[in-house]
C-alpha cells in the first residue's frame, strides 16, 4: 500500500502506463456504462461526425485515472474528482496516468491529476481531493 502520509508536496503517486487503447476496451466500457454513443465504437459513425476515427469515451479515461487511488480506500476516499476533457483519445494511443500531490491541509490531500497520450498531450486533467479517515 502506498503510504500517503509519507508523500511530500510535489511527490507523485506511482504512475501507470496503459496498454494501447483497443476497440474492445471501448466496447466493454459502452456495455458496462450504458453509453452507446456510436462515435466510440463504430468507424463509420465517427467519420460521419467529422472524426478521423473512433475516440474513447471521456468517462472511460476518467474512470481509468481514478485507479491511481484504488490502493488507498482503507485510509480514505476520493471526496472530490474534477476533470476537464481536453483532447481526444484514439485507438492505439498509449495513455499515462499521473497524480501529483500539490497541497496537504489537515486530513485532505490535493492532487493534480492527468491522463496524457504518447505525445505528452493531455487528454484529461483536473484535481482529486483525497480525504483520510
Amino acid at each position: 500500500m502506498t503510504t500517503l502520509t509519507e508523500l511530500h508536496i510535489g511527490d507523485s503517486l506511482h504512475s501507470i502506463e496503459l496498454a494501447p487503447v483497443t476497440r474492445l476496451d471501448l466496447i466493454k466500457y459502452a456495455g458496462a456504462s450504458g453509453d452507446f454513443n456510436p462515435i466510440h465504437t463504430i468507424d463509420e459513425e465517427a467519420k460521419n461526425a467529422g472524426l478521423p476515427g473512433i475516440i474513447a469515451h471521456g468517462m472511460w479515461t476518467m474512470g481509468n485515472l481514478a485507479k491511481l487511488f484504488s490502493n488507498l480506500y482503507e485510509i480514505g476516499f476520493i471526496e472530490e474528482y474534477k476533470i476537464r476533457f481536453k483532447g481526444m483519445v484514439f485507438l492505439n494511443d498509449v495513455i499515462t496516468l499521473q497524480a501529483d500531490l500539490k497541497e496537504k491541509n489537515g486530513d485532505r490531500y490535493f492532487f493534480n491529476v492527468a491522463a496524457t497520450n504518447q505525445s505528452g498531450k493531455e487528454a484529461i486533467s483536473g484535481e482529486v481531493i483525497f480525504k483520510t479517515y
Binding site: N37, A49, M59, E80, R84, F85
Partner: peptide
C-alpha cells in the same frame, strides 16, 4: 445522444 461534447465532470462524495 450524438453531437454533444462533454466538457467537464465533477464528482463530490460524502462517502464511497
Amino acid at each position: 445522444n450524438k453531437g454533444l461534447i462533454h466538457g467537464e465532470q465533477i464528482y463530490c462524495y460524502n462517502r464511497p
